[in-house]
């Protein structure tokens, strides 16, 4: 179907050029045949006449080739016109078809955009596969994915041997309910700036801040990282 479409477009655009090329193609054929006939022992005149006779008339053949191309162009043209006519005859069906296409294309675009952000795009850090997040859990209640206690971090940092570097962060407070859209948007961008991340000297080698400024390493308990 697709190859036919390409051939159709090519045939439509290059109609005149192809006519000229067919003439050249047939002239080439007559020359080659003449040459071959001479090699078989004919005189040049004889050879040329035989070659032309075998071709069955250059003009006739050229017309036949043009006919073949026109039949194809016409049949494709008819298919197109038939499709348009059928759609116009049943506008409800046409509408459903168009809306379906629009929804499906829109939907898959949306899904791909989401997947692209979540799955395909690499995190802006070197070797993102080695980034992990540490959580706490409650032995008694069995609750998982609890935030860690601030006071526990220095112990983890001192004792853990599996990590190249560690850094704690404080998530931004959730936006207040009831905010108007523009205000909550402004709020969110303001609160994003307040993600506090203490720095560890080794972290600073591999992580760079995407926005805002980074700060010199400070022991976690001593001085709270100032909001930036």
């Amino acid at each position: 179907m697709l190859t036919r479409l390409f051939a159709y477009v090519k045939g439509l655009v290059r109609r005149n050029a192809i006519d000229a090329e067919v003439s050249e193609e047939l002239r080439f054929h007559v020359e080659m045949e003449t040459q071959a006939n001479v090699e078989r022992g004919m005189t040049p005149t004889e050879a040329r006449r035989a070659a032309l006779r075998e071709l069955g008339g250059v003009t006739q053949t050229r017309e036949a080739v043009r006919g073949v191309r026109l039949v194809f162009l016409d049949s494709f043209h008819q298919d197109l016109r038939f499709a348009v006519r059928s759609l116009r005859r049943s506008p409800a069906f046409a509408l459903v078809a168009i809306v379906t296409l629009a929804l499906v294309i829109g939907g898959s675009t949306a899904i791909f955009s989401a997947l692209y952000g979540l799955v395909f795009r690499r995190l802006p850090y070197p070797d993102p596969g080695r980034l992990v997040m540490l959580w706490d859990y409650n032995l008694k209640s069995g609750e998982e994915h609890l935030p860690m206690m601030e006071s526990a971090f220095p112990i983890f940092e001192r004792e853990a041997r599996s990590f190249e570097a560690m850094a704690p962060y404080t998530p931004p407070p959730p936006p207040r309910p009831g905010c108007t859209r523009s205000r909550s948007g402004a709020r969110r961008s303001a609160s994003r700036k307040r993600v506090a991340l203490t720095n560890s000297s080794r972290c600073s080698v591999s992580l760079r801040s995407l926005a805002g400024r980074s700060f010199p390493p400070t022991p976690f308990g001593e001085a709270r990282a100032s909001p930036f």
């Binding site: 051939a7 067919v22 050249e24 193609e25 054929h29 071709l55 069955g56 053949t61 080739v65």
Partner: peptide, 23 residues
């Protein structure tokens, strides 16, 4: 192959996408 039918056949095959051609 009669030459009068060879060339139409070649162009028909090209229109069908079975062969392609270039000068």
């Amino acid at each position: 192959a009669s030459q009068g039918s060879l060339y139409p056949a070649l162009h028909r095959l090209e229109m069908r996408g079975h062969i392609r051609s270039e000068m």
